[in-house]
Amino acid sequence: MMIGSVKRLAAATAIAAAIAIGGAVASRAEDAPAGDLVNGKRLYLADGCFECHGRAGQGGRFNYLTPALAQIALPVESFIAFLREAPNDMPSFSADVLSDKDAADIHAYLSSLPGPKAAKDIPPILNQ
């Protein structure tokens, strides 16, 4: 119980940090885990991750804003720990429905999704 909540807190802190620096991380492709991208994409859609985090990993909204996951900065171990005991309204995914291997594949897919690009190249955005 105690260990669980400590782990949960650590994971939550890690993801908060990941979100905070998300915009500044150009690419983590080089230290992305050797996961199966194709399987990761399939699961990201089939298991419903896209419903709240967007098909492009752009983030979205459930009962509150949900974070962008493209170019995820969270290391794979923390990502899996986070899924197992997710905070707030994010549902936890147990190993019964999502194995460590499958979770790592999703992580690999998220690492492969392009993050933000320079808004200066996009006229309608410059127009805002």
């Binding site: 915009g23 098909r55 752009q58 962008a68 493209a70 933000p116 320079a118 808004a119 805002q128």
Partner: peptide, 8 residues
């Protein structure tokens, strides 16, 4: 604006 570029 930066966030809006993801998945443009």
């Amino acid at each position: 604006k930066l966030d809006a570029t993801i998945g443009w």
